[in-house]
Design a protein around this nucleic acid. Structure first.
Lengths: 224, 224
DNA sequence: CGCACTTCTGAGGCTTTTCTGAGATCTCCG
DNA sequence: CGGAGATCTCAGAAAAGCCTCAGAAGTGCG
C-alpha cells in the first residue's frame, strides 16, 4: 500500500528554475520527497500548510524575500529546520540570516555534497552510533523497533506505531499537530482519525502518560 | 533542558590556550557559562558527566581527535548540539565533520560574530519553541498555549483563553476596550458579555490579579 | 489454506471548550 | 446614600474535539 519507511519531506524555495530542478533531482536521489516553490509567496503558503521536515530557502527570491519569508514562518510558529542558501556571503549577511531564524546558512556557490551533509545534520534521523532515542524514563530502540522500559523490559511496536512514536520522539516537548503526523506517518488517503487510533494503540501498550494531548493543537511527548 | 533563568552552559574543547581564553571571555560576555578542556580525553570526561547546552569542539586536539571525541559522545547517547571548529575547510572535511555527528562546522579563521550567531541558532533548537511573552513574573508560552509560572509550573489554556491573554499581553499596560477584544478574539455574532466570561475564566485559572478591570474603559494587564 | 499480526475505518460515547443568559455584586456620581 | 449602569459569577446547553474499540481488509508465514 505504501513504502515502509516514510521519506523526509523537503520544501525547496528557489527562483532559479534550472538550479531548482537540479536540486530537486539531487534530493530525490538521496531519498527526500521534495516540493518546490519559485517565489516567497508560494513558499509561505506551502510552508504554512505542508508539514515539512526541513526547508531550503534561497535568500534572493521574488515577491517575498527569503529572510522575510523565514521571519513570517517563524512568526506563525513554524519550527521546521531551515537552511538558507545565498550568494551573499559576508559575515554580516550570515549573521543576519541566522538571526532571522535560519538553522544553517550556506553560501553559493556550494557543492552538492556539503548541502546534503548539512541537510543530514539538520534532519538527523539516526544519531550516529546511538541506537536509541530517549523517551522520558524509557528509551526507543531504533534498530529493533522496541521500547525499552527502565527495568529492561521490552515492548515491540508495529511499523506504524514505531514510526509515529519516533516522529514524536524526534522532537520531544514540541507539539506535533495531527495533520503533520498524519502527513509524515500515514498515507494521504487515510481517514482523519488514523492518528487518534495509533495514539490509542501506543497508550494501550506503553501507558497513558507516554503521549500527552494538547487540546486543539496536537500531541506531545516528554512534557515538562 | 535547563530552566530559563540559568545561563546556558558551553563546553569548549580547544588546545590552543590563547584562543581558548579569548573564546571563553567572549562567551562569558554573551552570557554563557563556559567549561574548558584542552584535550580530547578531558573533553570526553566533561562531555559525559557535565550537563551542557552546547559544545564547541576543535578538530585538531591532542590525545583524542575532535571527531573521534564527537563519535564517542554520540555513541554514548549524548545528544547535545555540537559545533566543530577546524582549520580544515575542504568540502570533504566539512562533510566528514557533519557526518561524524556535528550540528554545525565552522572553518578557522572565523569571526566572533559568526560563531556567536551559529551558537544562538543551535541554542534555539532545544528551546523547541519556548518563545514567550512576558506576563509579570510569569510568561506566556506561545507555542504550547501555556502560562509558565515562576516556579516552572505550567497551566494550559484553551484556544480562546490563550488568544485573549495573548492579545492583552501583546500590549501590556495598554487599556483594551471590550469591543476591541471581542472583535479580535471572538466571532462577531457572539454575545456582548463573552469577553467578561473569558476574563473570568482567566482569573479563575491564573489568579484574580492577572487582569485588571478599568471601569468603563476595558481591561489591562501588567499594570504598575 | 489457516493463523497471527497489522492497518485502517467509522461509529458511539466521553470530555473539553465555547457561548448564552440571568442574577449577584460592584462602581461611579449626583 | 442610592440608583443606573457596568461588571462579576456561574450553571448549563450546544458544539467541537478526543477516546475507545469492534470489525473488515490486508499481509506474511508455516
Amino acid at each position: 500500500m505504501r513504502d515502509g519507511v516514510a521519506k523526509p519531506r523537503v520544501l525547496l524555495v528557489e527562483d532559479d528554475r534550472e538550479l531548482a530542478g537540479m536540486l530537486a533531482e539531487l534530493l530525490a536521489e538521496e531519498g527526500y520527497e521534495t516540493d518546490a516553490a519559485h517565489d516567497g509567496q508560494r513558499g509561505l503558503h506551502l510552508g504554512l500548510t505542508g508539514h515539512y521536515d526541513v526547508m531550503v530557502i534561497d535568500r534572493r527570491i521574488p515577491v517575498l524575500d527569503g529572510l522575510e519569508l523565514l521571519r513570517r514562518l517563524r512568526a506563525r510558529a513554524v519550527t521546521t529546520r531551515v537552511l538558507v542558501l545565498s550568494a551573499l556571503g559576508e559575515v554580516a549577511d550570515r549573521v543576519a540570516g541566522l538571526d532571522a531564524g535560519a538553522d544553517d546558512y550556506l553560501v553559493k556557490p556550494f557543492e552538492a555534497e556539503e548541502l546534503l551533509a548539512r541537510l543530514r545534520a539538520l534532519g538527523r534521523r539516526d544519531l550516529e552510533g546511538a541506537e536509541c532515542l530517549p523517551l522520558g524514563t524509557a528509551a526507543l530502540d531504533l534498530r529493533r523497533h522496541e521500547v525499552v522500559l527502565p527495568r529492561g523490559e521490552r515492548i515491540t511496536l508495529s511499523g506504524r506505531e514505531f514510526e509515529l512514536l519516533r516522529t514524536l520522539a524526534q522532537r520531544p516537548k514540541a507539539i506535533h499537530p495531527r495533520a503533520a503526523l498524519r502527513t509524515r506517518v500515514f498515507a494521504d488517503s487515510t481517514g482523519e482519525s488514523i492518528v487518534d487510533t495509533y495514539v490509542y494503540y501506543l497508550r494501550r501498550k506503553l501507558g497513558r502518560d507516554v503521549v500527552r494531548t494538547v487540546h486543539g493543537l496536537g500531541y506531545q511527548i516528554g512534557a515538562v
